[in-house]
Design a binder for these strands. Structure first.
Lengths: 141, 141
DNA sequence: GATATTTTGCAAATCTGTCGCAATTTAGTG
DNA sequence: CACTAAATTGCGACAGATTTGCAAAATATC
């Protein structure tokens, strides 16, 4: 099922109206994984008002459709695992690009074990890795 | 060597003056791991001006002495690995407390392997785990 | 202690996110 | 398709967080 249909279906399920902001914000994020709030607002103002963008993102976050991913200090927006594959982020501090990694089962397992040692039950986790990407390593300066 | 001396030594090395804000901010963070910016400012205002606190934290961050750790949306301040043991964070979404975990060599290894698959060389990484702590699991509601 | 340099304090500006409320849009329903 | 109730938006104002320019003060060096 296309994520677009899944989305509309979930909205209906949750008794949320399908409004213009909700259509555009979702489309924007799903076509621009890792977009920042500032970029998002810039792109769709004045079609959609700033306040509505914030409200929409918050709503979609509450319903587990969108999430904020912190990379260092700023955050970017992505669809959650329900709409996209679970992955982690490699952020190159030189060229500033972010690589989205493939799902890695041993990483997941070790993280779970780590938390379990403390009697902790995980609902969610993020791994934020910073360093140099292959290109920047091989092309210094 | 006491971290205090290490700090003074590094400042000199980097040709940074040892000023009152730099002394107090460092001391505050090392004695209050996980303090928030707001708490920090509250504690040392008006001795040190807000703007100087921000500037100092940013400087110490640039030199790898202090780091901001994001837990969900807000961040807290800590000394980096150069001044403290490397660890990760278990954030309980119920009681809102954060557990600082012990160094876990297999977790480190898996994270390194994960990044290496992409030709990425790690300089730094954070693992942010959210869920329920042992206490809140056993005492629901 | 004099001097050059760095850093601070301050006030103003900017940025980010939130709020109340009237006007608009949406989802049903006949 | 028109009608109505409920949900949601746009807007402007607002609160808090962070940054900036610049003159004054503190620091490091000799």
């Amino acid at each position: 099922m296309a994520i677009h249909e899944q989305y509309i279906h979930q909205l209906k399920q949750e008794k949320l109206s399908l409004t213009k902001p909700r259509r555009i914000v979702f489309e924007m994020i799903s076509n621009n994984h890792g977009i920042t709030m500032a970029q998002l607002i810039k792109k769709i103002t004045p079609t959609i008002h700033r306040a509505s963008v914030y409200r929409t993102v918050t709503t979609l976050e509450d319903y587990g459709i969108v999430k904020r991913v912190y990379t260092g200090w700023k955050y970017t927006l992505e669809l959650t695992e329900a709409y996209d594959n679970h992955h982690h982020h490699l952020h190159c501090t030189n060229c500033n690009k972010t690589i989205h990694t493939e799902h890695d089962i041993s990483l997941e397992r070790v993280i779970n074990d780590h938390a379990r040692k403390y009697g902790f039950s995980i609902s969610n986790h993020e791994v934020d890795i910073q360093g140099l990407c292959a290109y920047c390593r091989n092309n210094p300066q």
